[in-house]
Simulated assay, not measured.
Amino acid sequence: MIIEGRTFIISGGASGLGLATAHLLTAKGGYVSILDLSKTDQDALFTSFPSISKSSSRVKFFPCDVTFSDSISTAIAGTVGWINQTHASLAGIIACAGISWPAKIIDRDGNPMDMPTAKKVIEVNVFGTLDFIRLALPHLITVPPHGPDGERGVVIMVASSAAFDGQPGQVSYAASKGAIRSATLPMARDLARYGVRVVSIAPSLFDTNMTKGMGGKARESLVRVMEWPRRAGRGEEFAHLVEAVMENTMMNGECIRLDGAVRMPSKM
């Protein structure tokens, strides 16, 4: 799939893995619609793009809360209106919005996990992802097919290494990311008839806003169990895998680990 001159919608695109992906796609000549919460500092967001101004025709921001269908619909409608102006057809739906609130199913004092917190993690990471994708897809499956295979585009979701080997305190988070992993193949099968591929990426410890609040001891323990390289992943490394997925048509229906060969132990 060609990136240049095509449009990509990224939920959670104002920071972390989503923003790194937006940077790469614009550098490759793509157009990026960034969906994120209304509290986003848009001036800082646009400043992060080299040689891209707030008035640029290749980056747009639309406020969006993925826990509300109406908010997603409004942001996507804005994106479609922008596409009608640029004539840069839609080519990718990238779901990066996500949260993590660590909590054991029952704590050391015998208190059960707080369900509203667990539900919020599932709501954002699972339902927010599926809602965003389902509402954007009608605009992707109708674009003209490209290339010898008649490809229309790609859906990329963010799972996690926790989907494979979640640690203590990751019950709700691992469940949410496991759902994304499990949804990848059936979604790819659903969309095959339209020439739309589906891939999920499962990062381990990456430098993002989500991991900034992690204590130094916890962070060091995670780095210590990595095989190589022994460090947190960088956003651009995630973005390069997104690029590889987009450009390799045979990548479909799979959840790809991006984790420095780490396999999370039950105890640190």
Rank of each mutant, 00 (worst) to 15 (best):
L140W: 08
L140F: 12
L140A: 09
L140S: 04
I141E: 13
P145G: 11
P145I: 09
G147A: 13
G147S: 11
G147C: 12
D149E: 15
G150K: 08
E151R: 15
G153W: 06
G153D: 04
V155R: 12
V155I: 11
I156A: 10
A159F: 05
A159I: 01
A159R: 04
A163Q: 11
G166E: 04
G166Q: 02
P168G: 08
Q170P: 05
K177S: 00
K177L: 03
A179L: 05
R181Y: 11
S182E: 06
L185P: 01
P186R: 10
A188K: 05
D190W: 07
R193N: 14
Y194D: 14
Y194Q: 08
G195L: 06
R197N: 02
R197V: 01
I201K: 03
I201F: 03
A202F: 04
P203K: 07
P203W: 04
L205V: 00
F206N: 05
F206T: 01
D207Q: 11
N209P: 13
N209H: 12
M210W: 00
M210L: 14
M210Q: 08
T211D: 04
T211A: 06
T211C: 07
G213E: 11
G213A: 06
A218V: 08
R219Q: 07
R219P: 01
S221V: 05
S221Q: 12
R224K: 14
R224M: 06
E227F: 13
W228F: 12
G235N: 02
E236Y: 13
